[in-house]
Write a protein that binds this DNA or RNA. Structure first.
Lengths: 210, 210
DNA sequence: CGCGCAGTCCATCGAAAGATGGAGGCGTCC
DNA sequence: GGACGCCTCCATCTTTCGATGGACTGCGCG
């Protein structure tokens, strides 16, 4: 029996997941959390095999307590449960950061219930689970690693997208302004542009960011 | 008994809505659709009082067959059901377009189940239903029309979004760089920001651009 | 007609951003 | 161990942006 915890800030989605998962054999939803703190507190008590985690959680204004944060925190526990990301949109940055934080898999919310259930089973067994659209994107990146942005660079791009100046980005990422500029030069080169505003335009086009 | 149809491309969300609404007295979910075409076909057969509609539907690549399209089509029927928009994010543009298309109300998916149920009842009675965050935003806009961007300014914003420099924008719009800067100053003031990248961020947030 | 507003243009100046060319630490892979 | 990629940091210099404070035109409205 696979013990599952749901983490999503939308009550409707949690109810939907319950409705979809409850009839399935071999697994049981034994906990629900609506934010990162709750999720971590419940995970600490143990007895959970797989966490179904939404990346966007409420109260993410600070930009820290989102699903990636929760994933990293949960995976840092001793004998941690597997974390399966279940979110709405595909963003390269999100996928990479989530996997880096220790996520076992990444599925989209519009996957069929059966796929979801089998995905949970695979995750419980420790297998990596990636939905087809996500796997395809990752393969695209591997095909041309010179163009692929590093995790750090993606973080910079995200900051650009919300309109941060070099100084603001430096503060938020705890690095110097010089380093931000350095990253920017590399990003410009990889994306073939020459200004921060164009970075955001290209990144959106390619789905690097939401 | 209020007869409800669910329109959402995510099976999980539909299941969640069912789970939330089924226990409620006085209403029954009698139909589900996962895209605009299905929704329209089912609505044409009649017997539905309220449609719960997600704005983002699958196959929206063309940008046409989304929830707004479906709403307009359904409201064009004779003796149409009320349409209550139920979506994830707030975008001023979406709200305005949906209301223009004939939606009776607009709620966010993270509203509490009770609010949702009472919202459906209100919608069935023909009352306009706007969640607090949405109503607040609309009031903000109405209260201060000086914030509205002019047509020319919106053109500038669009150019910013694709990453144009002042010089490039000037060339494309056949004006001088000085004029572009002048427009920018006005835009900064209206949006309350101080850089072109933040203009794009805020404009996206408010739905001023795609 | 006067008034306000949108759109156009101008000059100047300080502050960011971007270009250039480094350098060292650190982990991985062969 | 050495090569390589990533992240970090630095200084210098040029270009672009953004802030400021104007000015002129055309248009609609009362």
């Amino acid at each position: 029996m696979i013990r599952v915890m749901l983490v999503d800030d939308h009550p409707v989605v949690r109810a939907g997941l319950r409705a979809v998962l409850d009839p399935a054999d071999g697994l049981a939803v034994i906990a629900e959390a609506q934010n990162a703190d709750e999720a971590l507190a419940l995970a600490e008590r143990g007895g959970i095999d797989v966490v179904l985690m939404d990346l966007r959680l409420a109260g993410t204004a600070a930009g820290e307590r989102d699903g990636v944060y929760a994933t990293a925190a949960i995976r840092a526990l001793k004998d941690p449960p597997r974390v399966l990301i279940l979110t709405t949109y595909v963003s390269d940055a999100d996928v990479v950061r989530a996997v880096e934080a220790g996520a076992t898999g990444y599925l989209l919310k519009d996957t069929a219930p059966e796929t979801l259930i089998s995905g949970i089973a695979s995750a419980a067994a420790g297998e990596t689970v990636l939905g087809p659209p996500i796997a395809a994107r990752l393969l695209d990146r591997l095909a041309d690693p010179t163009q692929a942005l590093t995790v750090r660079e993606l973080e910079i791009v995200e900051q650009l997208a919300v309109g941060g100046s070099n100084r603001e980005i430096a503060k938020r990422l705890f690095i110097s302004e010089a380093t931000v500029k350095s990253h920017l030069v590399h990003i410009f080169g990889k994306l073939g542009v020459n200004s921060r505003t164009k970075v955001v335009a290209v990144a959106r086009e390619r789905g690097l960011i939401s």
